[in-house]
Design a binder for these strands. Structure first.
Lengths: 189, 189
DNA sequence: CCCTGAAGTGTTATATTATATCGTTTTTGT
DNA sequence: ACAAAAACGATATAATATAACACTTCAGGG
């Protein structure tokens, strides 16, 4: 409800815009600005390869392909969209379990995250540490940014602990409008 | 993944235990202790009736029935479980849209919440104000408690705002073990 | 009271997301 | 090379949710 009121297929309707008009308010806003995303992807793939090697995990061709498709999208992408791309690009008649198994592996290795409010998956920017993400999801363009280094999560868990609850995992997703999709307001708000 | 690793049907496997052995650590821990839940439910229904009247919204018999079933469960309950109960208890051959429409109404009125990690629904304790919940979900017994009066949410939104993101809605779900399901540790941790 | 339009509900069909199961292939360790 | 484990292919099906359209009920105005 709330979010995803329709949006059946997430596909890849990138716009790759924001040529400066709205001015992204900080340096880390890479998610909202155009950049050389293909280099993003290859960097992520390299890092993933390295990490898996370190961990004695097998980043097989298939898993790598799925990871690449997830990264390519730049927005959370659905499992069945991945499936479609695999079947299209590589003439491979992939079935759901193929994709879900790969996704499960990537999730376990923290190479991707699952966005619960979208039933979709997105590449993780800092896979080297198991962390809890805070996701900012644009209701309009679906661009999703992950905030890291979050003391808020600790606070939340602390508050949970105060009630006797032993927290193991947290899920924080914030919906709203990304800088690029906000109605233009000419001066600083 | 993470949570809900199987658990196909949420059903109502209450245990209604915790007769004092683990000692719930604070007064507000009603969710984890046995109490007169039927009075909870009737109170919630009364309040809902009143609120809807105030708002000029129609809490029809069907919507009330769904609300009651959600409250009865005491744990997040799936739409199809509600469906099954409606078809059983009242010899009514309800179809999915019937339940989903009622759930949508109740969500809009903030009479219930949706727990995204479980694809399930739970009654809201303080429906009079539109608020953002923080949910503590027990991975073992599924009991879910809602924390309210949360400055953490404000902090999160503040942090989002700092990056130029205009937050409208937040989703916070923390998984772990509720007091009753934690391995017994005899002295205070 | 009766009409009318809007809201609510019933019903059928179908979309979307995810998993179970089992057989085959590939990889790893010995 | 061989056996065990892991990964993958393939078919079927489960679980969650929505579309579309017909019918009923309700609120409000004449």
């Amino acid at each position: 409800m709330t979010l995803s009121t329709k949006a059946s297929s997430l596909k890849a309707r990138d716009h790759e815009d924001s040529s400066g008009s709205q001015a992204s308010s900080d340096l880390a806003n890479q998610a909202y600005t155009s950049h050389d995303h293909s280099s993003c992807v290859s960097k992520a793939l390299e890092q993933a390869t390295e990490l898996c090697q370190q961990r004695g995990q097998r980043l097989t061709a298939l898993r790598k392909q799925v990871l690449e498709l997830v990264w390519d999208s730049h927005k959370p992408i659905g499992a069945y969209d991945i499936l479609a791309m695999m079947s299209k690009d590589q003439d491979r008649p992939a079935a759901p379990p193929t994709v879900y198994r790969a996704l499960d592996f990537l999730l376990e290795q923290s190479l991707i995250h699952r966005i619960a409010s979208l039933n979709a998956y997105i590449g993780c920017h800092c896979p080297d540490s198991t962390h809890e993400g805070i996701f900012l999801i644009c209701e309009k363009c679906r661009t999703t940014r992950e905030l890291t280094g979050s003391e808020e999560i600790s606070l939340l868990k602390q508050q949970a602990a105060n009630t006797g609850f032993q927290a193991t995992h947290s899920l924080v997703e914030i919906s709203g409008l990304c800088p690029a999709c906000q109605p233009a307001c000419h001066e600083g708000a």
